[in-house]
Design a protein around this nucleic acid. Structure first.
Lengths: 218, 218
DNA sequence: CGTTAACTTGAATTAAGTCAACTGTCGTGG
DNA sequence: CCACGACAGTTGACTTAATTCAAGTTAACG
């Protein structure tokens, strides 16, 4: 459970935190059931989740993916309605944000960790916004792959293997593209030899610097 | 200087914070000069700023606007290069993020405020990502106007006046659109009677609920 | 009052979306 | 272990929203 767990499991605030949230098992494809009346902070103990925003007209945008040990802020009073959904069998702890923050005030180390994570999420979200606002389909997919390599890639000599837990639809919903466009861009990258794929979920990144170049990362 | 100033100006950490940053006056159109080797936290004392990300090919995406009393996190180790630029004559305090956070650990109230603000920024950024990923030009502009009304609008009976400090280019760079498309959408909204404009910067929002509807806010 | 840069409008182009048909993968049950 | 069915993914042809390029207008400042 990564670097967050120590803060949770020690100190006087830890017991108070435990009282706030029951551990929950979320089955693949299910939404984390949270009270729609307040903001939540959800800790992903194991598994993978996606944070989905719904706009009008049934359009959905995946705002972030989360892996074991990560913490997600799920807002409720926003312009769009958000929900957190499990990509695989996932264990979570869902804390009402206000209660969590109340406890964190008296636990500076916990609060500092929370702040650090929130800033990381903010910086990721900004980089994502740049991609959505100013990049073409090819750059978006390249950027996505490089980003995933960073988080869940298994490095090999000069290359990197990815086992993607999300479907092409999820990738499209994350990149602001249709499933068809994502597919075409996969084919394109395959054609140029930058990646290889096998089955639906395995991707081999053959040259990450070249992919980052193609992603338009400055 | 809003609700952040009290935290800065009282307590033992306040003096330490003051030692970290000289107040700076940034002239219209100039970039806040910060050491490109480390992350910064910039407090906007008065004025307005834009946080710009540069992707390859000279493309720019404005990631956020900031008004008096707000705090901006300017990252350096990200996929894109960021800079903070003044839309009008602006006073700022620029803190090296690491130093600021070091002091904040021993000032729970300051840290809590910082956390609260960072979460607000994250939630705004997510809503923005939804717009960039899944909305058409009309919805994006409507969303922008409603958002600005929320932050700097002068409410009147049933309507709201905006004095926009940013150009059409800035709006385009913020919405992931070209200046021409922004202009056409302004005309469109004018035509349908949802807004009136006078001069380059004044906008009258005649029906905010209708605009929010058109913005695709759920 | 004149100049200049910001903004607007129009016509042609293009990247991505849509619609439709086809193919491959993977889990199930014979 | 293999065959089948269902669904995920791919590919192609056509459409469309937004961009690009170009030519006016208008607002703001000296």
């Amino acid at each position: 459970m990564c670097c967050f767990e120590p803060s949770v499991s020690t100190g006087s605030g830890a017991n108070r935190l435990r009282g706030l949230a029951q551990p929950m098992d979320i089955r693949q494809g299910r939404t984390v059931p949270i009270d729609p009346a307040k903001d939540f902070l959800v800790f992903v103990g194991s598994g993978t989740t996606k944070l989905i925003a719904s706009a009008s007209g049934g359009r959905e945008q995946i705002v972030a993916f989360h892996f074991s040990g990560e913490l997600v802020s799920v807002p409720v009073n926003a312009w769009h309605s958000y929900r957190l959904s499990a990509l695989v069998q996932t264990e979570v702890l869902a804390f009402p944000a206000e209660d969590f923050l109340g406890i964190a005030v008296s636990e500076p180390v916990l609060q500092a960790e929370l702040l650090r994570r929130t800033m990381t999420a903010l910086h990721r979200c900004r980089d994502k916004a740049v991609g959505l606002g100013r990049k073409n389909a090819q750059e978006r997919l390249a950027s996505f792959l490089v980003g995933m390599a960073d988080r869940i890639g298994i490095a090999e000599e000069g290359s990197c293997t990815l086992e993607l837990p999300m479907s092409r639809r999820d990738i499209g919903d994350s990149l602001g593209l249709t499933i068809e466009t994502v597919s075409r861009q996969f084919s394109e990258l395959r054609m140029t030899g930058l990646i290889e794929t096998s089955g639906r979920s395995r991707v081999l990144l053959r040259d990450i610097p070249a992919l980052a170049e193609r992603a338009g990362h400055v």
